[in-house]
Amino acid sequence: MMERVRGRFRVAAVVAFLGAFPTAAPTALAEDAAAAEDRGLAIARDARQRKQGFGSFTASQTMVLRNRQGRESRRHLRVKVLEAPPEAEGAGDRSLFVFDEPRDVRGTAFLVHANKEGADDQWLYLPALKRVKRINSANRSGSFMGSEFAYEDMTPPEVEQFDYRYLRDEACGELTCTVVERTPRDERSGYRRQIVWQDTDELRLWKVEYYDRRDALLKTLDVSGYARYVDRYWHAAEMSMVNHLTGKSTVLTWSDYDFGAAVTPGEFLPTGLRRAR
């Protein structure tokens, strides 16, 4: 799997190199680079815009963690997301995760206030002590519940958190995908860059390749089972993350989507975390 992906990348890089170099003058190259960045940003903005306006949604997540030996363990959690009001400057969406499984962490809750620039604000609720703890968001690259998803993979990314570069359009299954490279602006991110495949029809995310700080392919995310909710929001049913370095994988299954769910802003405050269920 890893070899195949890498091999294809090498070919693509060679083609791009041959295509650009012999004909383009340096200024043209710079203009092309600027145009690619502009186009990448436009795609990100467009994709973001298509996801906006949902107000709130709730869903359930089941994670199946599989190690190299094939041993599986399960996580179950519920997610609530409150969209940032349109007039909010700098503030992003608020996400709340409540754990049901494994049972020993049942009732533990995790609150994220995303910020468009700079680190997110994060709180953890520990039910044994009934303690709400502000935690460091520098652990963006840390594993989420021992899975192959990092904390930074778990919340919807804000447009401003990356720099973009449009790479190409290519066929992906029956669809055409636009391929964009995005570079995290936050130096605490565990990634040097990500390559993102989104279809040109609806800008649904189909695949992401994550490159670590040494620019080696670390993980691949494959997304499937898209359905459209409340006539406009496309959401996936399954996200499969494979870690190429460790051979471990995590399959994240979404269910019980409820867009426009009845949530209150108070649930997304540190005090509301104490009653998260």
Binding site: G55, S56, V230, D231, R232, G260, A261, V263
Partner: peptide, 18 residues
């Protein structure tokens, strides 16, 4: 109306085009 609703403490309001 969506904006008004959110200001009035109905955070879950959203715009439904169809």
């Amino acid at each position: 109306l969506v904006v008004r609703a959110r200001e009035a403490g109905v955070p879950g309001a959203w715009y439904w085009a169809e």
